[in-house]
Computed example of a mutant assay.
Amino acid sequence: MTVHSQGAATSAPQDAPPKSAGRPKAPTTAPGSSHPVPPRGGRKSLPSGWLPYLLIGPAILSLAVLLLYPLIKNVILSFQDINKVEFIQRKYPFAGFDNYTELLGDSTFWTVVVRSFAFTLANVALIMALGSLIGILLNRLGKWMRLVLSMALVMAWAMPIVASVQVFQWLFDEQFGVMNWVMRTVGFSGYDRHNWFETGLSTLTIVTILVVWGSIPFVALNMYAGLTTVGGELYEAARMDGANGWQTFWKIVFPNLKPFFLITTFLEVIWVFKAFTQVYAMKKGGPDRASEILPVFAYVEGQSQAHYGLAAAISVLTIVILVIVMSFYFRLILKQEEEQ
């Protein structure tokens, strides 16, 4: 022990081993082994292979509850004979394939199927053609004009469907419609109180204008984004070879943006084929159910006619038809990916 001049004493010899503060640390490896020992009382780590499944688990559960369960219930309902009386009495008699047999033998159903395909084909062709042209225009405009046109496209795209349907009903109104006024102003006769919704064909034509108007912005803006990835040297080489605008599109633009055209067309086919709101909100499938497409046909049969089992069968057949059509398109997309 050493005594200082102030009288304080130090009691630790210089060669004594230092004491560690706190608990002694547990060994990190097992005796006689090189494998690490997990710390006691700590949180056990999950196997790394489980983490991706835990992350996507909530999404899969939500899809199962919101989509898979209603789909299964709808398929079961399609095999039952449920009308208004059975629904009130809560009786669910099994009908087998009677609903499907009735539909497949009904000429009205096949008329609606043909009408749905014609409606989809016309809309998708117009959307892709006009949207691509406007996308090319966006690529060639100056900065400020491109900004103005892009804002107009976004505003048209963001407009709610029901509100846009109301606007088109005003435009084509029989008494106060703008279209009748324009036709009279141009000099056409017979448009004093012309009914633009007189036939199913004219009604679907107006709905087609509405659908195309609301879908062009998506194609145009994506087309412009795709064109920005095409190098300017390719256009310069095409001009040096004497190619015109049409040849430049087919030789330069289309090959480079072929995946864009395939995916966008695929999405548009799905969106247009199941276009329910525009058709039903315009005239509820009228006049005389002459403008119904498959989603509207199923809704009218189920809600207006109270043929719930038959309506479920229509919706199931709609899904089957769409899956069959899309399978050919999926094959085309996979073939395109294999070629790249």
Rank of each mutant, 00 (worst) to 15 (best):
Q175H: 13
L201R: 14
V230K: 05
V186L: 14
G187Y: 08
E174V: 11
M223G: 02
L210C: 05
W196F: 05
G214Y: 04
I216A: 04
V230W: 06
M183A: 13
T203G: 07
M183N: 10
Y224R: 13
V212F: 05
S215F: 07
F218T: 01
R193N: 14
Q175G: 00
D173L: 02
D173I: 05
G214T: 11
E174T: 15
A225Q: 05
I209W: 12
L227T: 03
S189G: 12
V212K: 05
S189K: 14
M179R: 03
G214L: 00
L204E: 05
M179N: 07
D192I: 05
M183H: 07
D173V: 00
G200H: 09
I209D: 00
F188H: 12
M179A: 13
Y224K: 02
N222D: 08
S215T: 11
I209Q: 07
N222Q: 12
E198L: 14
L221Y: 02
L204W: 10
L204V: 08
N195E: 08
A220H: 02
M179P: 02
L221H: 01
G200S: 12
G226C: 03
S215R: 12
V230C: 11
N180G: 11
V186I: 15
T203I: 04
T203F: 09
F218H: 02
L201A: 15
S202I: 04
W196S: 02
L204Y: 08
S189C: 00
E198D: 12
T185S: 15
E198I: 12
W213H: 01
G231L: 02
R193D: 13
W181F: 13
H194N: 10
N222H: 10
T199S: 15
G187D: 08
L221T: 03
G226D: 03
Y191G: 00
G214N: 08
M179Q: 13
Y191V: 00
F197V: 09
T208Q: 12
L204K: 09
Q175T: 13
W181Q: 15
V186W: 11
T208N: 12
S215Y: 13
V211K: 08
T229P: 00
V207E: 05
V212T: 09
V186Y: 01
F176M: 13
F218C: 05
V230H: 07
W196K: 01
V182A: 11
G177F: 03
G190I: 06
A225K: 03
G190N: 07
D173Y: 04
S215N: 15
Y191D: 00
L210I: 09
N180Q: 04
P217Q: 10
R193W: 11
V212A: 10
F218D: 01
